[in-house]
Design a protein around this nucleic acid. Sequence first.
RNA 1: GCCCCCAUCGUCUAGCCUGGCCUAGGACAUCGGCCCUUCAAGCCGGAAGCGCGGGUUCGAAUCCCGCUGGGGGCACCA
Length: 511
Amino acid sequence: MADSGHSPFRFTIHDPRFTMKVRTRTAPSPTGYLHVGNAWSAFFNWLLTRNQRGVFVLRVEDTDRSRSTEEFETSVLEDFKWLGIDWDEGPDVGGGYGPYRQTERMHLYRQYADELRTRRAAYHCYCTPEELDAERKQAEAAGGAYRYSGRCRDLSESQRAAFLAEGRVPTVRMRIDPGPPIVVDDLVQGRVEFGPEHLDDFIIVRSNGTPLYNFANVVDDHLMAITHIVRGSEHLNNTPRQLLIYQALGWTPPQVAHLPVILGTDRKKLSKRHGDTAVRDYRRAGYLPEALRNFFALMAWYPEEDREIYSMQELIQKFRIQDVNNVSPTFDVAKLTWMNGVYMRDLIARDPDRVVTLCQDVLNDAGLLDGRVTPETRTYIARVIDVLGDRIKIGRDILAYGDFFFTDGVTYEPDAVKKYFSRKDVAATLGQLRDRIARAGPFEAGAVETIVREMATDLGLQTGEIIHPVRVALTGKTAGPGLFELMALLGRDRVVQRLDSAIDWIRSATS
RNA sequence: GCCCCCAUCGUCUAGCCUGGCCUAGGACAUCGGCCCUUCAAGCCGGAAGCGCGGGUUCGAAUCCCGCUGGGGGCACCA
């Protein structure tokens, strides 16, 4: 390509970085809870870094002061930690390339913006937002794409003074001149070319002095010695702009990899419309970080054919950013939930205490724990989990299948009532059992089962004819854990009491 | 309107680079069965896909072109 008179300007990554220590970053902006898309790209950055035994940096991009808050910064860092994505340098742990919060790096942006202007690669623009807005609207009305006219490019001293006298405060714009195509050698997307004629003189510093994303990003990535940038492909179009800044400053750009955008079930970029999009939502629902990680790993990447469950070590060891697909995946909650179930079953066997904590949080959120948690409470939760067994795929399932273990009364599901409370003799059957139970000996699963089966024999009933209505009476549901185990855990008093309530309920409903 | 990307079961994907081993493999979801007091889990089985049209070739899911479809981006947001 060196022969064509306009040999493209290439930003390939040759030599140095392959011998340099890999340094990557995740750069969340604290304007909301951690989004699964950001968590996903952070995770791929992290995998790449741990695979290369590099350094992972967390940088807070809070230059948009109107939308950033401290609360969100805290929550984002927390969610990263919860996910098990840890960083070696960051606002909380420090490091040799700080500060790690953009609002604390203003002097650097100022310095390089000045440098850019000195090099005549950037200039002051005195146009007001209103003026620009009007031009943009006009261009749209004419059906064309808006591009800044460049009218402030070469202002004279007197024009400048006049604008200043009017009270205008300038922004800083990059000066984009015609030139060869800008080539991005992307580790995931492959080679992509951009013609500079499609770019206009974009703003890099606001009139209030704060830098914009494209500029702050370049300054920080360079100063922090970032070698690889893995980010969503909504940023691919920004890359040529950033490359131009690197070039203007005489810097070597990092290697880039643009991940496909995660889609919702309607094939549109994943957003709130599709339900839960914040890591926090999944955390609250009782998903496990290890399952979420495993699930993330399988979006746009498949380590091996015919396998989906991987340990963290395996993931780190197998990860190659070059093998990531550039096809947008759909966020499939059903598969995530299945995978969580796989991890949950394992966890219940290996570390039941963690499951107790998980369910405890869910129960607390649902207001079923009175706020006070004693060792007895935990033991009880552990027993419930034991009885529920592998029905628990996510923490919240303790509510779906076992809320009645934590409530005083029972709410009967309409379908359950229709199905099992409608026969005329149910009340009598429940009454029978109630009496047999009230005067029975030790109240444990085996004994209860014997009582029920004997009663069935005595009355000439199918066992199911007793079991099903009793289940509804005790739990309100048609589905759930084994009846005898459930009764044993509920205890004789509550069973008798719920049976009585059900009998009353049925009688008043039929009379 | 302009720029960029993508295209295998409903979904995540393997295969594509280095055409034949692909009557396209796995997983989730779904359907049927077994187990069973329900549900869940587990096991067994089924249905389900190379967007369309042209090439190239003895041979194309795999290579080329076009079309169609989908997505992302065009800010004093990130």
